[in-house]
Simulated assay, not measured.
Amino acid sequence: MRITGSHAVVTGGASGLGRATAARLAARGARVFLLDLPSSRGEDTAAEIGDAATFVPCDVTQVEEVRAAVAAASADGPLRIVVNCAGVATPGKLLGRDGPLPLETFLRVVNINLGGTVNVAAQAAAAMAQTDPADGERGVIINTASVAAFEGQIGQIAYSASKAGVAGFTLPAARELASSLIRVVTIAPGLFETPMMAGLPPQAQESLATKTPHPARLGRPDEFAALAEHIVENPMLNGETIRLDGAVRLEPR
């Protein structure tokens, strides 16, 4: 899939992995639409990226908002690329100090991380399917899971379940959309420098950084963006969840 001239939607595009990916795609000649909450730094981020970037306020869990955002991204050019980075990591134990995990807390995380991913993918696929193929493809949808999908730690009940759902969604979606010439690939990052990580105390961040065997540091958002870029351009990458983690395997705690 050629990046130059394509329209791209990046959810969670105002910060972290989404911001880095949006900037990279814009630098490669894509017109990028940053989807994020109205309260985010979306406008500022789009201005920082430049004329190729447009901020579209959007809650990924809301069907009508996503449908409108996809329509805006498809208005004057073919939507070819979607990168789902929107997500939350609300902690919670199944049985915590205050009792059982509140179901509403669990469902909120699953609704955003998994439901939002499926919602955006479905609306984007509908738009992509109406476009003329370019170089044998109509589009590519890249999702974000996590190594927590496979080695969830204590306190990650909702987060791990939601990211495992994203990984599990990948292959059946890729198989289904193959007839429409649309690929679906998921990236499962390890420990990365993101706003979620920045919320931890410095000591905790340093401790987490040493858990990655090599390179022994936190991953950088531009490294995630580089893989997303390669996925777009490599037509044989399809239906797979790719770990981007420096060989880290998370312990229970």
Rank of each mutant, 00 (worst) to 15 (best):
G29W: 00
R31A: 12
A20Q: 09
G29Q: 05
S15E: 10
F33K: 04
G13Y: 04
R41A: 15
A22Y: 12
A23H: 11
T45G: 13
G18D: 06
G18N: 08
A23R: 14
V32G: 12
G50C: 08
A20L: 06
E43V: 10
G18A: 04
R41P: 09
E48C: 08
V32P: 09
G50K: 09
A22V: 13
R31Y: 12
A20I: 05
R24N: 09
A23Y: 10
T45K: 09
I49D: 02
D44I: 12
R41I: 07
R31Q: 15
L17N: 01
D44R: 15
T21V: 00
A30I: 07
P38H: 02
R28L: 09
L17E: 01
T45P: 11
R24I: 06
L17Q: 01
R28T: 01
T45W: 11
A23K: 14
E43D: 12
F33H: 11
G18V: 01
R28N: 05
G18R: 05
R41T: 14
L37N: 01
A20V: 04
P38K: 02
E43L: 10
G29H: 03
T21A: 07
P38G: 02
A14D: 06
E43P: 02
R31W: 12
S40W: 00
T45V: 14
D44S: 14
A22E: 13
T21W: 07
G29V: 04
T21E: 09
F33P: 03
G29L: 05
R28M: 03
A47K: 14
R41N: 15
A30G: 06
L35S: 00
G50A: 09
D44P: 07
R28Q: 04
R19F: 08
T21P: 03
R19K: 13
S15L: 08
A14G: 10
G29P: 01
R41H: 15
G18E: 05
D36E: 08
G42F: 05
G16M: 01
S15H: 11
A27E: 12
G16L: 01
S40L: 02
A30V: 06
S40C: 03
S39P: 07
A23N: 11
G50Y: 08
E43H: 07
A14C: 10
R28C: 00
D44Y: 09
D44V: 14
D51T: 14
A27R: 13
G18T: 04
G16S: 01
D44A: 15
P38Q: 01
L34M: 04
L35R: 00
D51N: 13
A20S: 13
I49E: 03
V32I: 11
L17P: 00
A26N: 03
G18K: 07
A20K: 09
L34Q: 00
A46K: 02
D51M: 09
D51H: 14
P38V: 00
